[in-house]
């Protein structure tokens, strides 16, 4: 019998700690598939964040570093500058990347670091139990915005791809979603393009993945997918924000 689908080798056969219906599993799988397809596991180093994906270091088969909250792009920079021919990716959530680690994100991007960031945006702090994230939508209820995010008090959400697209060091920035099969396939293509961009030393690449958090959103996984489509996508439009993968960012 022909095998038509199997676990990617770069994703270890271990149980994960993610909640039922969480989309981290899908995103992990896509990253692992890309690592397999590009044949780069032996020279890839991943950096896990603080947040729900904190234990991603146990799940990927490549070498892994666990970062302090928000510092993954700085660590990735240190690794990449030491081993320029390695493939280095960070896997970060919205609080990690766009709140406590904003400086590291922006500056690794503007330096045009040859690294790839997989940015998982579900609009909430998952691991600590559902507090407001920098990407929490206006009006969205979280543990720390119990009456809905009031932008006059808590300010406005950060649109990461749009913000980074103003920086000259960014070679590739795309926002994707993992709400349904066609978008999942697009997400995988984006991740592969980002890794390829890095391997070809074209500059900084980021793939922002809109994802769900059924547990902290207080929804079933199916409802959460629909909520993502109805609320997240209008605020965070999918699409390619920067594509300089042909020429690269350097003169």
């Amino acid at each position: 019998m022909a095998v038509v689908y199997e676990r990617p080798k770069a994703l270890l056969d271990v149980p994960t700690h993610y909640c039922p219906g969480c989309t981290h599993g899908i995103i992990h799988k896509l990253v692992a598939q890309v690592i397999d397809e590009l044949g780069i596991e032996g020279k890839t180093i991943g950096i896990a964040p603080v947040g729900c994906a904190v234990m991603a270091y146990d799940y990927f088969a490549c070498d892994m570093v666990e970062a302090a909250h928000g510092r993954a792009p700085a660590i990735a920079t240190g690794i990449k500058r030491s081993l320029p021919d390695s493939v280095v990716f960070t896997y970060q959530g919205d609080g990690d990347l766009a709140a406590i680690g904003t400086a590291e994100t922006v500056h690794s991007a503007t330096r045009g670091e040859n690294i790839t960031i997989i940015f998982v945006n579900n609009g909430i702090y998952g691991m600590t139990g559902g507090q407001m994230a920098p990407t929490t939508l206006p009006g969205m209820v979280t543990q720390t915005t119990p009456y809905g995010r009031d932008v006059s008090i808590a300010g406005f959400p950060v649109r990461v791809c749009e913000m980074l697209s103003t920086l000259s060091g960014v070679a590739y920035a795309e926002r994707v979603a993992v709400d349904a099969v066609p978008n999942i396939l697009k997400a995988k293509a984006a991740i592969k393009k980002a890794f390829t961009c890095q391997i070809e030393k074209k500059g900084f690449s980021i793939v922002e993945v809109l994802s769900t958090c059924p547990t902290n959103w207080g929804m079933t996984p199916v409802e959460a997918m629909q909520w993502l489509r109805d609320n997240m996508m209008p605020y965070y439009p999918l699409g390619v924000y920067v594509d300089k993968t042909e020429k690269g960012v350097r003169p």
């Binding site: 510092r71 700085a74 500058r81 400086a103 590291e104």
Partner: peptide, 18 residues
């Protein structure tokens, strides 16, 4: 680096890389 915080974490990355 963009900050002392980033600088020490770059050192962290480089040291981790060996």
């Amino acid at each position: 680096a963009e900050s002392e915080v980033a600088a020490i974490n770059m050192v962290y990355g480089a040291a981790a890389a060996g």
